[in-house]
């Protein structure tokens, strides 16, 4: 199947581009008409009970990122997920950078 069949042929998501590492969170208690969603979107909602980066979702679903972005932006428009842009680390808390350096040393 052509992956863009899942998106009704659309090749661009609505709204801001979803960052590769944007954390996707399912919205609890939202009213959900399952019949209006693609099976892949239902899988996304299941996975995103725990906040999950968009790139992980694309890898898990074995779908191209471009397709996953469109599925996610649809879910966002329906109020079923929130999407959180990760904070740039370059100028962030040095403690995080130190934790990364120390953590990598231990792997």
């Amino acid at each position: 199947m052509r992956p863009y069949a899942l998106t009704g042929g659309r090749t661009r998501p609505t709204g801001e581009t979803v960052d590769l590492l944007a954390l996707v969170c399912a919205v609890r208690g939202s009213s959900l008409d399952r019949s209006q969603l693609e099976p892949e979107q239902l899988i996304v909602l299941g996975r995103c009970r725990v906040p999950t980066p968009a790139a992980d979702l694309a890898s898990d679903l074995d779908l191209p990122l471009g397709v996953v972005r469109i599925l996610l932006s649809d879910l966002r428009e329906r109020g079923l997920v929130t999407i959180h842009r990760p904070a740039p680390v370059g100028l962030t808390d040095p403690k995080i950078l130190k934790d990364v350096a120390d953590g990598l040393r231990r792997i």
Binding site: P3, Y4, T11, R12, A55, D56, A58, S59, D62, L63, P64, L65, G66, V67
Partner: peptide
């Protein structure tokens, strides 16, 4: 390592 594809315009 994990598979990741991106299909872009």
């Amino acid at each position: 390592i994990r598979p990741l594809r991106t299909e872009e315009l």
